[in-house]
Amino acid sequence: MTTISTTKTIFSGFGGQGVLMMGYVLATSGMEEDKHVTYLPSYGAEVRGGTANCTVTVSDEPIASPVASFPDFAVLMNTPSLIKFESGVKSGGIVFLNRDLVDVRPKRRDIHVVSIPVNSIAKRLGNTRGANMVMIGAFVQKTGLVSLKSVIKSVKSIFQKKGTKIHKMNTLALKEGAAFVDGLLGS
């Protein structure tokens, strides 16, 4: 749990990993909880070449800058993302790694690392495209930035048009991610 009133998170990975969606889900959930939120995607030429990242700020008060030079949290879905963002993470911050695709360990000692095999979990659930949902479930469970309930609700409304089957699969993936973090805490 965090007591900081303004929290910045960077989500990063390659195109197709649903990185922007994770940020969007977090921002929407924050909005549902009547928090102040901003979502800033990387744009234009930055997006070319297949990498994607976005910054989400969640706060109890109006947000000054949507940019994060020193994010509290970083959700990094592949190795290049770790290389790019590790140094910026605030001391004492948390890095969430996709264990299945990040093959190096962070060098810094002053940050926490939560490493989750999100691709494997998603695959086990028969939902290979749901790795981002597993990750965001784990992320909110660990950070408490918003409640898992809000996330499930906003994911449902975002994917409204896709029907109940997708909703069930997303919910399952979110819960599995959260459960994985609980398991880490328990062990």
Partner: peptide
Amino acid sequence: DGLMGQMMEP
């Protein structure tokens, strides 16, 4: 500016 245009807010 680019930030106002790209940033999402409620």
